[in-house]
Each structure stands twice: as C-alpha cells, then as structure tokens.
Design a protein around this nucleic acid. Structure first.
Length: 419
DNA sequence: TCTGGGGTCCTAGGACCC
DNA sequence: TCTGGGGTCCTAGGACCC
C-alpha cells in the first residue's frame, strides 16, 4: 500500500504577516488579494467572525472595522520567499517532495515503517516551525485524495496538527461526514450533479459503481473513487517546470488610453519572461487578452484575445514585448474602458531541446546573452534596476495596495531592526 | 467607489489521413 | 434506395485546484 502525506501551512499569508508582527497572534487578521479585491487568507479568529474565503473585501468592510480586524494587502514577494524557506526545510528532511502550491507539499513515505509515520510527521512539523516560524498541518493516508481529507481533520480536529488514515474502517467512518463537494477535485458543478443522482457524501461516492461514473462524468471522477477506496491513482508530480506561464492584473482604475495598456502589457510580459528564463525554457507562442470590468453591468462590455506563434522558440523579453504590443493594438477598441489585460506564454520548451529551423538561421545567442546580463544585474542590484523602456515609469494603471506590509525578508531597507 | 491571479488536465468535435 | 472503418492531430471549452 502506498503512503502519502500532505503538508499544508496554516492560514499561510496570515501566518507570514504574524511572524514580524507577533502582537497579532490570537487577534483577527485577514490578507487581501491583488488590488485589495478579495479576502484570501484569514486567521482562525477572522474565520470565527463569519468572514468567508474569497469574499469581496468591500462586502465585509463593516464587520472588519467593527471587530478591529487587521487587514493586509498581499505581499507576494514576502510570501513567496517564506514559501521557499518552508519547502527547503521540508526538502532537507525528506527528498522527493511535490510542491503543490505556495503553501502545500505532497510527500511519499513508502520507505518508512508504518508504525513511525506519525512520529515522522511530528518531526517535520516541529523542524519547520523551528526553522521558519510557520505552523503546519500534516495528513497521512494511502492516497493523495485521502491525505487531503486527513489534512483537513488534522487542521480542524486535532491538537497536534497530525492525522493519519490507515485502514478502510477509519476511512469510512470519516468520509461519511464529508460532503462530496469538499473532496479534492470535486466542486460546485459536479457536486450538484452528483447530489441530483443521490450521491451526497464522500462515502456514498466511494461506494458508487465506477463504470457508471466514468460514463456520466469522466476518468477524473473515476480515479477519485479509486483513491477514496485506498487505491493510489495519482502519483507525486516531481517535474517542476511549468507548461504555461501567465501574467495578468486588473488595473488600479479603469483605463482608456492604449499607451497605458501597452505600458502595462510590457510590464506583465517582462514578468512572465523572467519566470520563463528562470525555469530555463523558451516559448513558442503567446496569448494576449484585454477586457472590461464584468461587474460594471451598466457599462458596455468587451473582451478580446489574440495569439501569435513564433517560428523559433524565444525567451527574448524585447521581442516578446514588441509582439505583445502588436497584438494589443490589434484587439484594442477605443470605445471601451478597460479593467484588465494579460499575457500567457504557452508551448514552452526547455532551452536545451530547441530544434534548429530548416530555413531560419538561429542567431538568438546574442539575445540570450543580453537577457543573461539583464537578469544578473537585476538579481544583484534589485528587481527592475534595468528594464525595457516600453515598461515605462508612470504606471498610472498600477494596482491598489493600500495596506502592504514590509518586504521583511527580500529588501535590505525593510529588514527588521531591534533597537 | 470597491469583486484576484496563476495553474493543470480531460473531452468532444472538426479536419484530415489511408 | 443503398455511400466504410479505423485512425491521428489539433483546438476550444469545461472543470477543477490553490
């Protein structure tokens, strides 16, 4: 039988903020998404006030102010850095981990004696807490899907933050209380369809005929059933390279001028290209989109996208910015007020595996070297020390971030001082 | 006034092949 | 009157994740 564990950081963004503001412990805290739009992380105290995950900030502003909830804008540089510290710590204890999201990792524990799993989890938790200050929970089970459920119980119903599912008797007892849409991989639409068929708990789904599910849904749901039965169908994914890279953001205000949109798309493109080079890949295509604000129902709505393929894969920010700006020019219509734009790089290939073109001479080496110089300067002297002119400096479209904390671990000037 | 951003995988259907 | 069977590749769109 396989053995999986899922490690999940508790209320991750809030926990990061508390590291450098310990007086916020035991007090309600929330962290907002980009543009201060939605609530994406809540302390347990904030959850108790009835503030739901993903809710628009302005809907809960009254409750937040009335209860003295501390509010932070998102500080992804900081959270990303803390995430890496957590994952590095975990990797020092156990090799071969799958970093599943900014605050979660799957681990395989097959090589350990079944009697020791909880002790190992305890060791992992305490080391990560000691080295990073971030509290975590660990769920252990024969499959990834069950380890997700075990993690949920570890978080909500245990005092030591660890829960292990090791036989089908325990599984059945636990999953009889889990609604289908709380299972990893099932959400609102499938949940609704399953309920209409009389399947409302995870246990009922586990006992449903797989052929029937395969015919009425897809292989994804069929696999979930096997996973609930303790038969592992989803292994660790150890390849870390992305298959597509996207950068998009809503503007801080509605934008009409194409010059400002071009400036914004140039910035997003530079961000995406930097990521592309970090994973040592090149892109064969780009997809650019532009849209109005769908929540403003009284305004005329517009949404358009365009794609472009390159004859030769590239990671040259200059070339990709030029191409992205051309696509923007093609889809821009001056009758609308815009809310968001973005770019996606797709069809990525490792830079080492690039095939030469029969008719086009490959002379990207110069550009490759230029990008290396650019990345190195920005790495040693700080982000955006040098940048492409089209990225501009005015940034009228920039997102709102009224309550951002300091970059405690990523900027020298923000490093905490003790007087 | 104010509603995030970045990903993955699977399927159906069209277009094409012999 | 009656028009095959088996296959591949690509794309758009759906559903889900954090």
């Amino acid at each position: 039988m396989s053995k999986f564990a899922l490690l999940d950081c508790n209320n991750f963004y809030v926990s990061c903020e508390r590291l450098f503001n310990p007086y916020l412990n035991n007090k309600p805290v929330v962290v907002l998404s980009n543009n201060d739009g939605c609530i994406v992380s809540r302390s347990n105290e904030a959850k108790k006030l009835g503030i739901p995950m993903g809710a628009p900030y302005h809907h809960y502003r009254k409750i937040i102010e009335k209860n003295n909830v501390t509010v932070f804008s998102s500080n992804y540089q900081f959270y990303g850095d803390m995430s890496q510290r957590v994952m590095d710590s975990l990797n020092m204890i156990i090799p071969n981990i799958e970093i599943y999201s900014i605050d979660e990792a799957f681990i395989r524990l097959d090589n350990f004696n079944s009697n020791h799993l909880t002790a190992i989890a305890k060791h992992i938790r305490s080391k990560i807490f000691m080295w990073t200050g971030i509290p975590t929970s660990i769920g252990i089970a024969p499959t990834k899907t069950l380890s997700k459920i075990a993690n949920r119980i570890a978080k909500k119903q245990t005092s030591n933050g660890i829960f292990e599912i090791y036989d089908s008797y325990i599984t059945d007892k636990i999953i009889s209380n889990i609604p289908v849409e709380d299972i990893w991989g099932i959400s609102y639409r499938w949940g609704k369809k399953l309920r209409a068929l009389g399947i409302s708990s995870a246990l009922e789904l586990k006992n449903t005929d797989t052929k029937f599910i395969r015919n009425n849904f897809s292989i994804i749901l069929e696999r979930i059933i096997y996973e609930l039965r303790g038969l592992s169908c989803i292994d660790l994914n150890l390849t870390s390279n992305k298959k597509s890279i996207r950068s998009s953001k809503s503007f801080g205000k509605l934008i009409t001028k194409i010059e400002e949109i071009e400036e914004a798309i140039s910035n997003y493109t530079a961000t995406a290209c930097k990521k592309l080079r970090t994973q040592k890949s090149k892109t064969r295509g780009i997809y650019v989109f532009l849209k109005t604000n769908p929540f403003k129902q009284n305004e005329p709505q517009y949404q358009k996208s365009a794609t472009l393929r390159f004859d030769l894969p590239t990671s040259d920010t200059g070339l990709i910015i030029r191409s992205a700006k051309n696509l923007i020019k093609r889809i821009y219509d001056n009758r609308y007020r815009y809310h968001k734009c973005g770019i996606m790089l797709f069809d990525l290939v490792p830079e080492k595996e690039i095939q030469s073109h029969l008719f086009i001479k490959y002379d990207e080496y110069k550009k490759d070297n230029l990008m290396k110089v650019l990345d190195n300067i920005n790495k040693s002297m700080g982000p955006k020390t040098i940048f492409h002119a089209s990225e501009g400096i005015k940034h009228e479209w920039a997102t709102r971030k009224n309550k951002i904390s300091q970059h405690y671990t990523t900027k020298w000037k923000d490093i905490p001082k003790i007087y």
